[in-house]
Computed example of a mutant assay.
Amino acid sequence: MTTDTGAAVSTRGLTKRYGATTALHGLDLDIPRGSVFGMIGPNGAGKTTTMRLLLDIIRPTAGELVVLGRPPREGGAELRRRIGYLPGELHLGTRVKGREFLAHYAEISGPVRKGAVDDLADRLGVDLGRPVRSLSKGNKQKVGLIQAFMHEPELLVLDEPTSGLDPLVQQEFHAMLHEAKAKGQTVFLSSHVLSEVQQTALEIAILKEGRIVEQSTVAALRENAVRHVKVVVAETDAADARATLDSLPGVAGLAAAPNGPGTVALSATLDAHVDAFVKAVARLDVIDLTMEEPDLEEMVLAYYGTDVSSTAEPVEADRKAAKR
């Protein structure tokens, strides 16, 4: 693979095996520079493995990988200083205070703008004067975020970044992502919660059992996602309304139920054919119409099937590899 791809991250046939277990099956991925890219998948899908490969914490079994124009194995410490990384399993047991902890990482990661750490701590609401080990899970996560963001890296790799954060801090984190994108930084974040990613990412990849089963923009996914619709008509018009809706493209699961005196509610799901549906309904004598927001969660769960609680990725093997 050429290193001059114009993308922040490019992979071709990226494969990772742990003995007889294959965590990644030939991943092809391109993350444009200056974008926010989300990877969705249940535990065990391969999200953490992908991110650790980018950092050269572990190495691929097969395939090619280029990060910021260089293969991670060749880029070494110089490349890693251009990346901000928040691991999914954050273990901060140190006795030192938060400020000292971050000062140590600043020496490793490179120059940190004066006041940047304090600005981030104020935004996230964390006391850096306390020993890190005494902090709650949420506050440790905030320290981890500061460590990733403080040197304003070209690429942010964030594994389950909002784990343990309360809703108000999550909103502040989303603002930080938008600001990073505005400054030209690239963000690659993972989650098993779609709603978290769709608020910030332009494009997402849905990962299942080490394979990308869908890659699209959030807008395109929304356009094609299933909507739940309900049309209320007079009981005398129900048969004609049902025949009209039943003949439309994209309508499925049409059902009728009493909705009060003299009325019937026709419920169904609708895919991308919204225009045809609205035009058909406009010709009916409608008492009430409800069309819910596209349910992207439902769409993603359809890809997962029953695999939403699969076992976690083999992180212990990753840790051993990191110690080599």
Rank of each mutant, 00 (worst) to 15 (best):
M1S: 15
M1I: 14
G6T: 06
V9L: 14
G13T: 08
L14C: 08
T21Y: 06
H25Q: 13
P32V: 02
G34P: 06
S35K: 01
F37Y: 15
N43I: 00
A45Y: 05
T48A: 06
T49Y: 04
T49I: 12
T49P: 02
R52F: 08
L53W: 07
L55E: 13
L55S: 15
I57T: 13
P60C: 12
A62L: 12
E64C: 00
L65H: 09
P72N: 02
E74F: 09
G75C: 02
G76M: 09
R81A: 06
R81N: 05
I83V: 12
I83M: 14
L86D: 01
G88P: 07
G88K: 05
E89K: 08
L92A: 11
L92S: 00
R99W: 08
Y105C: 13
Y105L: 07
E107G: 15
V112M: 05
R113I: 14
K114L: 11
G115H: 09
L120H: 03
G125Y: 02
G125F: 01
V126K: 03
V126C: 04
L128D: 09
L128W: 13
R133L: 04
S134A: 09
L135V: 03
S136Y: 12
K137T: 15
N139K: 01
K140C: 08
K140W: 07
Q141C: 11
K142T: 05
K142I: 12
V143P: 02
I146W: 10
F149A: 02
E152V: 01
E152W: 00
P153T: 10
E154Q: 06
L155M: 00
L158S: 11
P161K: 08
S163D: 13
E172H: 01
H174E: 04
H178T: 03
E179F: 01
A180Y: 02
T186G: 11
T186V: 06
F188G: 04
S191G: 09
Q199W: 00
T200A: 12
T200N: 14
I204T: 14
E209Y: 05
V213N: 11
E214P: 02
Q215R: 15
S216N: 09
T217Y: 11
A219I: 07
E223I: 01
N224Q: 13
N224H: 14
A225L: 02
A225N: 00
R227A: 05
R227K: 02
R227S: 04
R227P: 01
V229N: 07
K230T: 15
A239Q: 12
A241E: 02
D246S: 06
S247G: 13
P249F: 06
A257Q: 03
A257P: 00
P258T: 08
V264T: 06
A265Q: 10
S267N: 09
S267W: 10
T269E: 09
D271W: 00
D271Y: 03
A276I: 05
F277N: 05
K279R: 15
V286M: 01
I287W: 01
I287H: 08
D288L: 04
D288S: 12
T290E: 15
E293A: 14
E293L: 11
P294I: 07
E298K: 11
M299N: 12
A302T: 10
Y303F: 15
Y304T: 03
T306Y: 01
D307L: 13
T311A: 06
P314A: 11
K320E: 12
A321I: 15
K323H: 07
